[in-house]
Design a binder for these strands. Sequence first.
DNA 1: TATTGTTATACTCTATAACTATA
DNA 2: TATAGTTATAGAGTATAACAATA
Lengths: 157, 157
Amino acid sequence: MIESLNRLRRLGRMTAPTSPTKAQLLELVAALGTAQWQDFSASAARHGLTGVQAKLLAHLKGPMPMRGLATMLVCDASNVTGIVDRLEARGLVRREPDPSDRRVKNVVATDEGHETIRRVRAEMQATHTALDALDAEERTALYGLLERLRDGLRPGA
Amino acid sequence: MIESLNRLRRLGRMTAPTSPTKAQLLELVAALGTAQWQDFSASAARHGLTGVQAKLLAHLKGPMPMRGLATMLVCDASNVTGIVDRLEARGLVRREPDPSDRRVKNVVATDEGHETIRRVRAEMQATHTALDALDAEERTALYGLLERLRDGLRPGA
DNA sequence: TATTGTTATACTCTATAACTATA
DNA sequence: TATAGTTATAGAGTATAACAATA
C-alpha cells in the first residue's frame, strides 16, 4: 500500500524535479487534451469517421434525441442535423420517432455503428500503454485526480 | 511527506470507491481533454479569437516559421496561411522575412497579440480552482503522471 | 407560448493538389 | 531536387436566424 504510493510519487519525481506552477500544470493539461483528441481523431479517421462523428457514436449507448446530442457535444442543435445526416448516410445510426413526443427524433446506433466504434475504442486502448504500469490503487488515485481536474474545468458537468 | 501522499490517495478514493478499469480511465481522459478544449475555446471567444487562433498565439513565445506552426498545430502547412492571415488582419501577429533563408517567413506576436493571449491565460487560471487545493509535492506527483499520460498518447512528443 | 428539429447562410478549420520562389 | 509558403478547391464543423410541427 505504502509502496504503491511511493511508486506514484516516484513517477512524478521522475520527470519533474522541481514543483511545477499552476500555469505549468494547466499547460500540461492542455497538451494532454490536445494529444488525446488528436489520437482519437486519427483513430476515427482510420475507420472513415471524423472526430466529432466518432465522439457522437461513442456516447450513443442508447436512443438519444437530437437535442440531447447537441447538449453532449456542446454545440448548437442545428449542427447535429448534419452530423447525424452523414452518419445515417453511412448506415451507422438511425433516426426513430419518439412514441411519447412527436417532435422528438431518437438517434440509435446500428449494428455496424456499434461495431465501428468498438474498433475505434479497441485501437485507442491498444495504443495507450502508459496506464498498464499502474496497479489498482494507483489507478484509483489517478482517476480521482483527473475527475477533480475535469470538475474544476467544468463545474456543471 | 507521507501525509501529502495519503491526501493524494484520499482525493482519489473520494469519488472512485472501486478501482477503475483502463477503459474508464481513458474515457475520463477524453472527457478531461474535451472539457479543457471547450473552456479554452470559450475563453478565446470572449476575446474574439477562435480556439486554434488562441492556441497558435499561446505557443508563439518567439519568432516561428509558418512551417513550425503547422508542426505545432499538427495540421497541413496550407492551413496556417489562413489562420495567420486572420490574426495578422487583426493586428495580433506580424510576418517577418527570415534573414538566413528567404523562403521562410517568421511569425511574431505584436504587443496587442501578447496582451490578448495574456488575458486568455489569466482567465483560464482564474476559473481553474481545482489545482489550488494541491500542495507542492502533490503538484509534482500529478505533473509527472499527466506527463506520462501525454507521452503514452503521443510517443513522439 | 415554448420546444424540437430542420433549413439557409456565412465563417473557420481541414486536407489535397498545384504553383512560385528559393535552397 | 527538395523545401517554404501560397492559392484553389472541396468537405466538415460551427453559430445565427428563421421556419414548420408539436407540446
